[in-house]
Structure formats: structure tokens, C-alpha cells
Design a binder for these strands. Sequence first.
RNA 1: CGGGAGGUAGUUCAGCCCGGUAGAAUACUUGGUUUGGGACCAAGGGGUCGCAGGUUCGAAUCCUGUCCUCCCGACCA
Length: 504
Amino acid sequence: MPKNNLNRISFEMGKELTSRAEDYSQWYNDLIIKGALADYSAVRGCMVIKPYGFALWENMRDVLDKMFKDTGHVNAYFPLFVPKSLFEAEEKNAEGFAKECAVVTHYRLKTDPDNKGKLIVDPEAKLEEELVVRPTSEAIIWSTYKGWIQSYRDLPLLINQWANVVRWEMRTRLFLRTTEFLWQEGHTAHATKNEAIEETKKMLEVYADFVENWMALPVIKGVKTPNERFAGAEDTYCIEALMQDGKALQAGTSHFLGQNFAKAFDVKFSDKENKLDYVWATSWGVSTRLIGGLVMAHSDDDGLILPPRIAPLQVVIVPIYKGDEQKTMIGEKVKIIIQQLKELGIRVKYDDNDNNRPGWKFAQYELQGVPVRMAIGARDLENNVVEIARRDTKEKQSTGIDGVAFYIKELLDEIQLHMYNRAKQFRDEHITKTDSWDEFVKLLDERGGFVSAHWDGTPETEEKIKELTKATIRCIPLNNEQENGKCILTGNPSVQRVLFARAY
RNA sequence: CGGGAGGUAGUUCAGCCCGGUAGAAUACUUGGUUUGGGACCAAGGGGUCGCAGGUUCGAAUCCUGUCCUCCCGACCA
């Protein structure tokens, strides 16, 4: 039987999980660590993504990458380091990120003359120009695009890169906010404003499609207010998801950059009439943060619940036997089932490890969120059945061995859909309209989720509301209903409701 | 960066106040019995007590510094 690489992943053996009710933050950490998605590292704020967690990321990456290619994008790779002079070229962008940049100032270490065996930074090896470790790549990419774009024939330029970035955050949380993280960033250049706006929206749709249909995470598509906008963008579109504790999570962003970067880096093109103009730009990204959202939106007190379409393992088969003879018999039957499952493209693992008993394995795979578990024992063989347990509802039932592969394939689809619907129901139940300030505050404190309320459109009011309630405007939903009303805080006239929430 | 907690065996933790041979459970190894929801018996291996200094005849324990983690806050396109 060909061994799936994941068969060799060693799992964390911890048993005790903190419950959500007891301590939501700790529950989240427990799931990440004990579910073997990631580990803490020796570097402050940085984590190690373990094989199981990385397999999840790889699945997400592969699907997204295909979606990008299907929409005409190609991959490239730009440097990690950005010369400071380039970085500061687009002023607003530079300002926005300045406080969280790691900076390389030297290029050499040397032996400490006063402390043998130790190294110090060689003061002689100071860089003439400091290098910023990219918090995002607009600067380095647009300085490059300048040389790539001369005429409208070079446009549109549709490039994506898979990369790591560094943002020096005060406080980090596994996956949700780490100093270094993995993401993709698309950077496109267009001849017209409209085309760039279309691209921005198109990629938002791609994100929404991916997150909803593959991660089973319902999202609200919207536009950010100026306060929450990407530094250097004209408009920031976003998808917002809701976590089980009622806090919102920005799951992806797509920016219409106007001509800001083209002007900063002097990227001009000749149009058909041979007139020079600056190109129009977009950028868009999602990161490993999505994994954090996935965990917090779906999982329960028994562990992770991973959506089948991106789960590293979709099915685990656990044999139940007395003695080698039974084990062999079961093994032979399982071999056939695995073959059938693999023919249907299902990711399956057979855990016939003798070290642990079935009950232990059940608990372990539940902790790790494997969508479907199949248990098969001698008794089942006699009756030509297996026991199928689904992780999302924890329901168990027997089903005939013949046709079990198709049964599982359908079950995986059903689980995927059920997870989405369950999350969507929770999300929809946590969007509340209000026109009263007292209720607004009460909703945020007691119910959580999104609060749909009128806002007078000023940054000052938004800021004040944040001060008073810690809630921010997550977005102005796309195709938002226009409705006259009064601002929840100031009572000033408003033409539409916006979504407030406390957020990660 | 502020407040709080913590770092001792792979893991969870006791020991620290009151300095004197480093412990438990679990995991691991071996043998045996087991196996339908986290098995049991027996034997065994495993720790420079986060790191670096200091005090002391002697430091896991006292002192200083430093690194890392967690929680709350500030910060966060």
C-alpha cells in the first residue's frame, strides 16, 4: 500500500483541551498546538508551521493558485529586502507601515574580541542604505514594473507572488498575527481606471469564492472606510468572517491603488493615441491568517473541525481487532477500500499502528479535525459493514462495505455543505440592526457579532465609537441597501447602515 | 511597550518561601496480556532545572541581567 506522507506525521499527545466557555483564547491555542498545526519558536512572535498545518496551507495555496491562474495571473518572485529609498517613495504606504518594519543595517558579524566564541555585529559592515524587510511588496514591485511597462501593449500586467512578509507587531497570536507570515500578494497594472477597479472586485470575488466554498467560511464582502483602508490605496475591498466568540476577522483584502504607486515610481505607458499616462494598479492578498479563522469558526471543544475540501486527511480508517489474524483480515479488506477511495481522489490514512487502542485514535483524530472516520472490526467484516463517524456532527452509523467509497465521497460533500451552513446560520444570527446607542453598546458587549447601524460617514465619529466600544467599522457591504437614518452616535443624517464589530 | 503569570524529563506539573544526592504522572523502550471511545502488568532509559553572571564550602532554590511563552491592555493596511 503506498504510504501517504501524512502517515508519518507524529501527533501531539496532549489530552486536555481547554473548553471555549472556560477560556476562548486558551482553547484556540490548545487546538493549534495540540492539533499539531503549529508550534512556538525560539523567535519572539514567530511560529513554526508543523507538517499537518503546512499540509493545510498547501491545500489552500494550491486551490488559490489555480484560481489565480484561471483568471489570467502568473507567478513571480521579488526580493525580501526593500531599499529604504524605494520603500519611502509612496508616502502614505511608507507611513502606514513605518512603525512595524524590521530593518537590516549591517551585513556581517564577527568574533567578539572580548568574548571568545560569541559573535557581534561588525561595526565596519554598516550598509550604506538600510534594507527594509518587506511588510508588503508594492515598493519593490512597482520600482521593477517601471522597467517592464512602456505601452498599453504591456498591459494588463497580472502578477502574483507567494511569499513571506514581516510586520513587527506588539502582540502576536498563532496564525492570526505573527511577526513573519506567509501569504500571496497579487500586483496588477492596468491601462484604465475601470479595468483596475474591475480587477480589484474580481479578485475579491475569487477570495469570497475560495473562502466560502473551500473553507466553508461565510463572508461579507464590503468596502473599508478611509480609517481602515490600506495605506496607499484609493479603496480597500474586504471579506469579513465571524468567529464563534462573536469577533470579526478580516479574511482577505483587495485594493484599488489608483495611480498612487505609478506616480510614486513613475510608471507611465503610451496609449493607442501615443499619449503618456500613469498606469492604474491593484494589489490583493490572503495569508496564513485564514487558518486561524478556519480554526475559530468551525472547531469545537473536542478539537479541530476541518472542511473536507482542504483537510490534509479526509478519511482515517481505524481497525479494531483481536490478534494478528483479525488484523490481517481487516487489513486486506481495508486495502481494497483505500484503493477505491483513492480512485475517487480522497485523501485517506489507515492507522493500524499497534501502539494505541481504537479509543485513543478516535479522540486523536477528532482533535485533529479529520472529517470522516471509518472503524472496521471483525464483527463488521462478518456483516460486511463499516462504522462511519463524521467529525462535524459526531454522528456514527453503519454502512455496507460495498459502495462505501461513493458513500464517503458524498458524505464529504455533505459535511462541507453542513459546515458552511452551520457557520452561515451562526453568522446570520449575529448580524443585528439597531438604531439605539444603548442597544448598540449592549449588543457588542452581550451578543457580539456584527451590528448594523447608521454612521454619519466621518472618520471622527468612527474613531469615537472605537474609543467608546472597541468596535470598528468592519465594512460597508457591497450592494448595501440605501436607507436614510440617523448616525448611531451623533444623530447626524446617514444614508446607509454599516457593519460594526470587535475584530481580531 | 505597560500590568499579571510562567519556563524543572517528550508533555503536564511538584520541589523554591526555609540552599545540602532532581521527583511524580504521563509519554517513550523492552517483554507479556490486551484492543467496538483515551488498556493493564513488569522491567528500563531519559533532565548542564530557559540562558548568562553573581553570592555561597555548596544554587532548581537567594540576587542581577537577559531570552522565550501565555493572559489583559496599548498597538495592529
